[in-house]
Amino acid sequence: MSESIAYPPAGATARDRTHTLFAQTMWYVALTAGLFALGAYLGRDLVGGVGIVAFIAAFASLIGMQFAVRKSLNLTVGLLAAFGLLMGLATAPTLAYYASADPQALWQAGGATALFIGGFGAAGYATRRDLTAIARIGSWALVALVVFGIVLIFVQIPGGALIYSILGLVIFAGLTMVDFQRLRQSTDINSAPLMAASIFLDILNVFLFFLQLFSRREA
């Protein structure tokens, strides 16, 4: 890793450090996405139980990053890499199912996700309005969405899956804007792996919501 990227010169302006943070974070997002794709490929024949174990391990890696960031940047990046690979393994059975049953939905969801993240990310990065309130509302709304998803497992609600996906996209539109605004406002280079993990989770969740929508449309 280039020292000029990881550690800007001492005399660099706040704008320089922000631009460096943006570039570094996007590099980490790309790295995580690449390892996610590798994990999804390697785990394409895994059974669901292994995917659950991989998801728990990925969550543990994410928690570990919160502590490692205060001690070692290299350790934090290593945990981020493990997180991406494990998330790929965790979602591999789902992606493999869609690849065999409805491959067109995968491409449509991927394209829609790129436009969604690009649009709302740019809006969040450019806006001068404080999005702190959206962050609080989005966090609680996400908890409510998880509860709603659990209810759907046990209770048949007409159009429940469609409602769940649309609400999820609305919530992550706000959270994506918040994450990109934080990226513009911060100048702490060491926060790049954590920001990358947050943005990657935005991308992954949006992709999965779109995947549900497009697969339902084709049904």
Rank of each mutant, 00 (worst) to 15 (best):
A57F: 04
F120K: 01
L152H: 05
I199E: 06
S72T: 13
G110I: 05
G78Y: 08
T76W: 01
R70E: 11
F210E: 06
S186F: 05
L167Y: 05
W27R: 06
F209A: 01
M26E: 02
A123D: 08
L73M: 05
R70W: 11
P8H: 08
A14Q: 12
K71P: 01
G48K: 10
V77D: 01
T94M: 14
F148T: 10
A81W: 01
A92M: 11
A82I: 03
P9R: 07
A57H: 03
F209G: 01
I189V: 14
R70P: 03
A126S: 09
A101G: 03
A133K: 11
A10K: 08
A126M: 07
A40T: 08
Q185P: 04
F200K: 03
V143M: 15
Q185W: 10
A101P: 00
Y164S: 09
A135I: 06
L131M: 07
Q104A: 15
A112K: 02
L85C: 12
A114H: 09
V29P: 03
G110K: 05
I163M: 10
D45H: 10
D130H: 08
N74L: 10
A6K: 10
A33K: 00
I203R: 01
A58G: 09
A141K: 02
K71Y: 09
A192H: 02
A197R: 03
F120E: 00
G118P: 12
S191H: 09
